[in-house]
Amino acid sequence: MSNVAGKAYGMNVMTPLRWWTAIWQKVIFWVVVKTFPYFLKGLLTLSLIHYARWTIINRWSFPRLDKSQPKEKLTYSYMLFESNFNGSWDQYIDSFSFAIPSGLDMFWRWNIKYPKSIPLHDFYHYIRFNQVECDHYYNAYPLASANDVKSAQALYADLAAFADSSEALSDDAFAAAWQQFLADNQHSLGSMGTSPLMSTSNQLVQEHHHDDLQLAARQTQQEEA
């Protein structure tokens, strides 16, 4: 299974923490979010990101599917990082490392063997080593990036309002209002299309998928014949 669906990439990273630093880290997360939201400004400005979430899982609180599943005795607590974003793995990690290196270091500082986000390739290896691949990944809008969705929502709301308010206008007033509507929404009018190719590996996966579909279609035809 691939971590790619349409324009989106799904990333999960599990990194170990000592159990006592995990508790300390929870406090820090809380304080940062409550009191220093400007720490997160960089993260929010990286518009390729749908969302990013850091969760501390204490070593004694890993979920079990059922009571019959034996409890694991874990040495470490873990930090689960989840994110969905548009673009390739490299582009995402690069953007993090270039734009908000100190923010990243704050989040991962106490993780075992965290190398810091600069130099870049040590950070690359750390993330790759600890990444948990997606078993299943579904995207309801494969042609839309998060920016596309945000644009479409803004445009839809404005267009609905325009439709309501423009009904009684004279032709000239309508023309003027329409021009203003376009100007106000000029940043939400990008074209919709397929994702650029994330990698030549992903290209192969897509080709294999295409081949499988064709093979299945041929088999169905033969069976019908």
Binding site: K7, S47, L48, N86, G87, Q91, S145, N147, D148, S151, H187, S188, L189, G190, S191, M192, G193, T194, P196, L197
Partner: peptide, 16 residues
């Protein structure tokens, strides 16, 4: 070439 010339997500302009 790929992200900035043939695509526009970083500019919030979709696939222009």
């Amino acid at each position: 070439q790929q992200q900035w010339i043939n695509y526009s997500n970083d500019f919030h302009l979709g696939n222009d």
